[in-house]
C-alpha cells in the first residue's frame, strides 16, 4: 500500500487553501450571492410578519420556540439549504465549464482535486455564513421575549449544526453532480424535490436512502401540531450514526467529484 508523503500532503493542503482563498473572495462578492443572501433571509421576513401580527393583534399565539422549530426549520431544511447547496455545489465544476474559464485553473501548479475541494470549501463557507445569519435573526425575532432562557440557545446550536451538516452533505452530492453531468441543475432539482421529498417519508429502512432522514434524526420529535409532518413517519437513526453517515456521504461524493474532475476531459465547445 502506498501512502502520501507528508510534504506532498502539505503541498496539497496548501493548494486547497489557495483555491479556497480565491473563490471565497469571489463567492462573497458574486452577484448570485447577493440574490441568495436575500433568499436565505426569507424566513426572517416571515418571522417578522408573525411577530408583528402577534404584537399588533394582541393575541399571544404560538410560542417563539414552537414557531422557530417548525416553521423556520421547514424553510431551511426543506428548501433553503437544498437550493443553496444545489446552486453552489453544482457550480464548483460547472461554472468553469460554462464560463470556459477551466483553462485558467488547470494550467496552474495545483492538483485538480485541490480545485474541487478548495472551491467546495469556499462555497460551503459562503453558504454557511448566509444560513447562520438568517437563522440567528429568525431566532431572535421569534424569541425576542425569551432571550434570557438558556435552553433556547442549546436548541439554536443544534439547529445550526443540522443545517451546516445538511449543506455539507448536499453540497458534496451536488458538487459530484456538477462534475459528472451536463444538466446538473435539472438532475439536482429532481433529486431535491423528487427523491428527497418522497423517500424520507417511506416507512422502514427505505427512508435511510435520503440525506434528509439523517438530518431530521437530530431534530426533536414534534409529536403534534401543524408542522409535525416534518418528522412524519421518521424512524430516527441514532445521532452518532447519523453524524457518521452524513460525513461518509460528504466524503464519498467529494472523492467521486475529485475523481471525475481529475480524469474527465471536459469539452468547452458549444
Amino acid at each position: 500500500m502506498t501512502s502520501i508523503p507528508p510534504t506532498d500532503f502539505r503541498s496539497f493542503l496548501s493548494s486547497v487553501g489557495r483555491v479556497f482563498a480565491v473563490f471565497f473572495r469571489q463567492g462573497r462578492k458574486a452577484r448570485r450571492t447577493r440574490f441568495f443572501f436575500l433568499f436565505s433571509f426569507l424566513p426572517v421576513a416571515v418571522s417578522l410578519v408573525i411577530k408583528f401580527n402577534q404584537v399588533f393583534s394582541g393575541k399571544p399565539g404560538r410560542e417563539g420556540g414552537y414557531l422557530f422549530t417548525n416553521l423556520i426549520m421547514l424553510f431551511y431544511l426543506q428548501m433553503i439549504i437544498l437550493i443553496l447547496a444545489l446552486f453552489y455545489g453544482t457550480s464548483v465544476c460547472s461554472e468553469e465549464l460554462e464560463g470556459k474559464t477551466l483553462a485558467y485553473l488547470i494550467t496552474r501548479p495545483i492538483p485538480k482535486a485541490a480545485i474541487v475541494l478548495g472551491k467546495y470549501a469556499a462555497y460551503m463557507a459562503v453558504m454557511t455564513g448566509m444560513v447562520i445569519l438568517g437563522l440567528i435573526f429568525s431566532f431572535f425575532v421569534l424569541n425576542v421575549d425569551r432571550l434570557l432562557d438558556p435552553s433556547l440557545y442549546g436548541l439554536l446550536g443544534r439547529y445550526l449544526g443540522v443545517l451546516i451538516l445538511g449543506l455539507m452533505a448536499y453540497g458534496a452530492f451536488f458538487t459530484f453532480l456538477g462534475s459528472s453531468l451536463k444538466r446538473s441543475i435539472f438532475f439536482g432539482l429532481l433529486f431535491s424535490f423528487g427523491w428527497e421529498n418522497v423517500i424520507q417519508y417511506f416507512p422502514g429502512s427505505t427512508q435511510r436512502l435520503a440525506i434528509a432522514h439523517y438530518l431530521k434524526s437530530f431534530l426533536p420529535a414534534t409529536s403534534s401540531g401543524r408542522f409535525s409532518f416534518l418528522t412524519f413517519r421518521l424512524e430516527p437513526t441514532k445521532p452518532g450514526l447519523a453524524l457518521l453517515m452524513l460525513f461518509a456521504i460528504a466524503a464519498a461524493f467529494l472523492a467521486l467529484a475529485c475523481l471525475f474532475f481529475s480524469k474527465k476531459e471536459y469539452s468547452l465547445e458549444d
Binding site: A21, Q26, A30, R31
Partner: peptide, 18 residues
C-alpha cells in the same frame, strides 16, 4: 471571471501559482 476586476483576476491567478 467577469465579476472580477482586472487586478483581482491577475492577483488571484498569481495566488494559485503559490
Amino acid at each position: 471571471y467577469e465579476e472580477m476586476t482586472g487586478w483581482v483576476f491577475l492577483t488571484s491567478l498569481l495566488k494559485l501559482q503559490g
